[in-house]
Design a protein around this nucleic acid. Structure first.
Lengths: 361, 361
DNA sequence: CCATGATATGCTCAAACTGAGCATAGAGAA
DNA sequence: TTCTCTATGCTCAGTTTGAGCATATCATGG
């Protein structure tokens, strides 16, 4: 509460002095495409030597894990963070990114377990990038995987995902029961109800991050138990009441470090953005049918849409132009081919697929 | 395009090796409150010794500038970035922050001119924080100022801001004219039309950042010319076609470094958030009248709302509860006092002041 | 050539939501 | 008592949504 002069910290020494805290900045990219009606992200297989190298004898997980592509940020080379991302993604994978957007900066203590072994803090700036369908997969060991492999509970296109009732809600139930007292229990119950929409059937597609965070805190997700095991193994204490399950189980495929959290952030962001910015077109070819467009929106948002109403809204919004051409290979009546109408940006303040179904309710 | 193995960069050396890029992380906070129907932010007066110290003889600006509160991030002390912000804000100003949210990480080259003088890159992570009305101002030299002092063109509550037609649009006009060729000119015209809504009178309150960025690029805002002057003075080259005006003029009050850009980011974020999250209540007392609530929303969004419809929506949304008490000092019929209904979080997926006027159109 | 099975596309209709006002209520001030 | 204010209730036309029904236009297989 000391009323210290605020600008004292502006002194040069405070910033450039000896005590300069060493933070290494890394850039993680969630590179998204949509192919065969599935939203896919680029992942690499990565040996979790974070643990393996430092304590091979402690018997912690050594098997390789999926990880998001990563590149260090070097201020000597890169003028801006965005350019840094584009640069190393292109260098490593040959992919030329279209839309690129900064997501969030993650710098929690122990987000990288190497910190426990004496490494410095590694801050990671998450990025979201979109590339067109049909872009050749990354070279090297990078592959495209459906993001639903990691978040199966986020795909409601074929109805309520079974994993919710089979694994997730029971796990959360357990966590609620394990609360220290009634008030905590009630708070936990509320939180589950809010994020998973257990009450009014109100599933909010945008709350991907909230849901993942909750699953992590509740120890339902494999990463939670893995990280806890790492802390214990390295001498940290753990007061947490996580269920004692094998570290590798849990809903969805796990990822290295906090990468699944970064993915969740990306999913939340793109689902939100869909409504008010024309980002879908970044994932579509130049000419497309309305059903193709609908399928991409559905893949990203994870919910089915009413076809006729989708047409009405998209056409009515002025987002697209009829090219006059048709796509004949539909298996039925040929579909008109449309293209994105860039001029709409000039006319409407928030052009996007503002479907009511996507607006939350 | 070399198809290098992606995971090669995961090697420990790449991260912790000798060539570790030195990046200092600072935290800037946009601390917002609303008092007397004005949205206010906490600012400090700061001598721009960035330039003054390094080249006192070159005659560059030495007068103090407004700056956002700043604190270094020290990974040795702070477990998370959020905690870091709360900690130094409390230490320096005695303010206990309510809502805190990360905005964006800024790390452009030369965002801090000290870099030109040989300092390392200073990355800044911007934060948005809300504190209740009536919170005592910061101690030391921190003061509350209306954010419209810095962005006067964002306040449409009393009609179209005069500064738009008097200063901004002429300045942008000049920039459009100065384009190298017709296609650039057309692109610039489009961009102005989009961000400032010159076409259909479509002012999108959320595009605060787009507008500020455009003003900066067009050299309309004082910071653009200041930064350019600094680059030239320090030997950098400048090919830019910025108008030759005194560095200190331009619409709105200028700020140090890229702080006005960070403010613009905060304004965009909160205006967007207002629609789907109950953030207004962070700025209101426990019990409030609907008009008080409306005034806070108007102050933040910069637009006037229809009173009866505001009531209808807020009450209908279940966001508030009647306390049964009344506020008598209204100057007219006493107004019912309401309080925030926290349970709404459990019921609705996206509770917020989702007024149509705030939805863009 | 005609039914069948697909998908595309057009159109309708009730329910809910918005934008703008009119009208009345309950205070203090003149 | 009347006037002036702000609060609060209510109406109404225009628009937007949610859900379907109906028709169009292909390919395919009798």
């Amino acid at each position: 509460m000391s009323a210290r002069n605020v600008s004292s910290l502006f002194q040069r020494e405070a910033i450039f002095g000896e005590g300069r805290p060493a933070v290494v900045i890394g850039l993680n990219a969630v590179i998204i495409t949509v192919a065969e009606e599935e939203p896919r992200i680029l992942v690499v297989r990565r040996a979790d030597h974070a643990l393996a190298v430092d304590m091979p004898s402690r018997g912690l997980a050594e098997e390789p894990q999926d990880a998001l592509p990563f590149g260090p940020f070097d201020p000597q080379v890169h003028r801006t963070l965005d350019l840094g991302v584009r640069d190393w993604v292109e260098t490593q994978t040959g992919l030329s990114l279209g839309y690129v957007e900064q997501l969030y900066t993650f710098a929690d203590q122990y987000r990288d377990p190497r910190e426990l072994a004496g490494g410095g803090r590694v801050a990671s700036i998450g990025y979201l990038a979109l590339v067109h369908q049909g872009t050749p997969g990354g070279s090297g060991d990078a592959i495209w995987r459906s993001w639903h492999d990691y978040m199966p509970w986020e795909d409601w296109r074929d109805g309520r995902p079974a994993v919710l009732d089979e694994e997730i809600l029971p796990g959360l139930e357990h966590w609620i029961e394990a609360a220290p007292d009634a008030s905590h229990r009630s708070a936990r119950l509320d939180r589950v109800a809010i994020t998973f929409g257990t009450e009014a059937g109100a599933w909010d597609a945008e709350r991907v991050l909230d849901r993942y965070q909750l699953l992590y805190e509740a120890g339902v997700v494999a990463e939670a138990r893995r990280d806890r095991a790492a802390r214990i193994a390295l001498g940290g204490t753990s007061q947490e009441d996580l269920p004692d399950q094998p570290a590798q189980t849990g809903p969805g495929r796990s990822m290295a470090l906090d990468h699944r959290r970064i993915l969740a952030t990306a999913m939340s962001r793109i689902r939100g953005k869909l409504k008010y910015r024309p980002v879908v077109f970044e994932l579509l070819p130049a000419a497309f049918t309305l059903l193709q467009m609908q399928r991409v929106v559905e893949a990203l948002s994870g919910v089915r849409l009413h076809k006729q109403n989708f047409r009405r809204l998209v056409i009515g919004s002025g987002l697209v132009d009829d090219t006059g051409r048709v796509e004949a290979r539909t298996g039925g009546r040929p579909a008109a081919l449309f293209r994105f109408r860039r001029e709409v940006l000039r006319e409407r303040p928030a052009p996007g697929v503002g479907l009511p179904a996507l607006r939350g309710a």
